[in-house]
Design a protein around this nucleic acid. Structure first.
Lengths: 226, 226
DNA sequence: CTGGATCCAAGCTGATACTG
DNA sequence: CAGTATCAGCTTGGATCCAG
């Protein structure tokens, strides 16, 4: 009944005792961009199988990382899964790992053969809140191929949500996944890509420039630090 | 032959394709505190089994995270495993996850029944280099129960090594694992523990105070941020 | 000291079928 | 829609023994 565990008095070992099994961290990633329904998770996590997904969610609930909630605005008794406070901290804690993966383990060959979502690639922009000055606020809508996600910056913190922005976005940008791949791999910057026309933008030029500064500054301070 | 993979164009998914299997990240953690021999790894990672360890090391080598090297100062042809540049970046990227685990998933009940090493608990002090002003240098030797590790701070960066400091340490501190557990869980600070006599110190009072400020400041800025 | 080989147990995948 | 149940087949992991 009790899961396999490492039995080491070490933060990493304890973290992996809880979220080290296959699929578990990807579920946390999914819920990091807003509450989701069971079938939404099953769709996005292609290959998990309904039985294993149910098991993983149960484990995450038992460990206080995920909470189930009844959607109030939905017609029937639709269940929503959302992160607890500890779960949100976990979702932030894995961002450096995601950035590492984007930088070191993703190459162009993958782009066309893999599943893709805009919110997955926005994730690495949310790398910590301390770098963004708290007077920059904004809603930025990203269209990558046919996928849409919303990046919100407020009070020096960033958050990502699946789908279009709820309110009107300050800036709407459109690009292909190949452009995203180039930026992730640091072969180009968002500023360059906009200048070259690889990214089309709608919105005030000042707001666009602000977004570009955030993203490029973020990427460089993060990845060129080491 | 090729490993199971998630097939998602996402940094986290790609990172987990490479280091998501059981034991892999713990091997990276071990090599984060200095190069190690095969048997050292096998000893520390109790339960892994020699065959699986060999497989994991081979995978990490193939993925450019670990490199093998012949120890020049050793008698025979002893092999040493060490992290590559990408591996060191990975070791840094998983520190927030380790901090999360220490904060949320470790409680007192574990302390006596689990394996323990001083370098494991020093790991969460190394949480990023940007917080330490670059004029603080020092070598701090930690004795926790019978385990010894060395924390070095230089040029605003921290690093952890297994065993006693190579050079003479500025400060030597001695404590039990229970005190470490209390600090990790934020039930006390290192400053308080020293004042109460739960930690004994050797070295100049000014250097001790500097260490205390580093550790306590680091913990609080990291964990009270969210 | 560094692993390879082996055997068995545990975990994962995929499919299908069934319930409130 | 939101799961649970089951089951066969495959892949991984664990433990022990053994070889260069």
């Amino acid at each position: 009944m009790s899961r396999r565990n490492y039995s080491q008095f070490c933060g990493l070992a304890h973290a992996l005792d809880v979220v080290g099994e296959r699929w578990t961290l990807l579920i946390v990633r999914e819920l990091g961009s807003g509450p989701k329904r069971y079938t939404q998770l099953a769709d996005t996590l292609a290959g998990i199988g309904t039985s294993l997904l149910a098991t993983r969610i149960r484990q995450l609930e038992a460990d206080g990382i995920v909470r189930r909630r009844l959607a109030t605005d939905q017609p029937s008794s639709t269940v929503l899964y959302e992160l607890t406070a500890a779960g949100r901290e976990l979702a932030e804690a894995i961002i450096p790992l995601a950035v590492w993966g984007a930088r070191h383990q993703m190459d162009d060959a993958d782009v066309d053969n893999e599943a893709f979502r805009a919110e997955w690639v926005l994730g690495f922009l949310v790398a910590g809140s301390e770098g963004v000055s708290s007077d920059i606020d904004g809603m930025y809508e990203f269209h990558v191929d046919d996928s849409v996600a919303c990046l919100r910056v407020r009070d020096g913190r960033m958050s990502v949500k699946t789908g279009a922005c709820a309110e009107r976005a300050d800036v709407v940008v459109q690009m292909t996944r190949h452009v995203v791949a180039s930026i992730a791999a640091q072969r180009t910057t968002i500023t360059e890509a906009i200048a070259e026309g690889a990214i089309t933008t709608q919105g005030e030029p000042a707001a666009v420039a602000r977004l570009a500064a955030i993203v490029d500054g973020r990427i460089y301070s993060r990845l060129h630090a080491g």
